[in-house]
């Protein structure tokens, strides 16, 4: 197994009196797609925010390529699609992606054709974000995350709001990216984990209750195992 690019070590986050994430530890290596399962409010998005460097942990460490996730060096290695795609409603798709590319120090003109093509946004390039469907916004958010081809991808429910064909295309893209990237994929959909991921993590009330290879889980009955753990007291 390759060296882990993404490391969570005893990662915790407290908001006032609520511990949203509690001492979570896992790694994701290059060439791995890791599914991140859990109910709404289980702490998946908070964990991703910490790994992306947008939120400092209350305790523990989040490392990206060996650097603290809030450092500039770590942020250069991360591509992040948050739960709600961070789009500016007044921009067109093209302007939005040019903005995302410029944030990474890239030349927008060089980066744009590749991003538009990879996420099937070519025909929508001049559409204003405010007018896009939820699924298209999701694809623009994904394209932003891919700007500069960062080696670590944090994808928070990338198929939410997509129609079945679009969802299948995104899953195929994630699978393809997983060959030479470290991908952490948050999802509610157990079958998505079975189809796309090499490993599954399960968060329950902020704590990690499962870290297992998908092949092993499939042998035990993936859905039954996950549902059993989610519903356990």
């Amino acid at each position: 197994m390759a060296e882990p690019l993404l490391v969570a070590e005893g990662l915790s986050r407290r908001f006032a009196d609520v511990e949203a994430v509690s001492a979570v530890s896992f790694t994701v290596a290059k060439g791995e797609v890791v599914g991140f399962l859990g109910h709404n409010g289980a702490g998946k998005s908070t964990t991703q925010r910490m790994l992306a460097g947008a939120l400092a942990p209350s305790a523990g460490r989040a490392l990206v390529g060996g650097h603290a996730s809030t450092s500039l060096a770590a942020r250069r290695l991360i591509g992040w699609l948050p739960e709600t795609p961070p789009l500016h409603p007044e921009l067109t798709v093209e302007e939005q992606l040019a903005f995302a590319a410029s944030l990474r120090g890239l030349t927008p003109a060089r980066e744009l054709p590749h991003l538009l093509e990879r996420c099937g946004l070519g025909e929508l390039r001049s559409h204003v974000n405010a007018t896009l469907s939820k699924g298209t916004k999701q694809r623009v958010g994904l394209a932003q995350a891919l700007a500069g081809d960062p080696p670590v991808l944090l994808l928070d429910e990338p198929t939410a709001g997509l129609d079945p064909a679009q969802a299948a295309a995104v899953r195929s893209l994630v699978r393809e990216l997983g060959v030479d990237h470290a991908v952490l994929l948050s999802t509610h959909v157990v079958s998505e984990v079975a189809a796309v991921c090499d490993r599954a993590l399960l968060l329950r009330r902020g704590a990690l209750v499962l870290d297992e290879r998908t092949e092993v889980l499939k042998g035990k009955g993936l859905e039954a195992t996950v549902l059993g753990l989610l519903e356990a007291a």
């Binding site: 925010r49 992306a52 460097g53 947008a54 939120l55 500039l72 942020r75 250069r76 991360i78 992040w80 948050p82 709600t84 961070p86 789009l87 500016h88 409603p89 944030l103 990474r104 120090g105 932003q144």
Partner: peptide
């Protein structure tokens, strides 16, 4: 309010 500040905070920009 829009949630775009997180994206800026996560970008490799000071």
């Amino acid at each position: 309010q829009r949630g775009t500040l997180d994206f800026l905070l996560a970008a490799p920009v000071r």
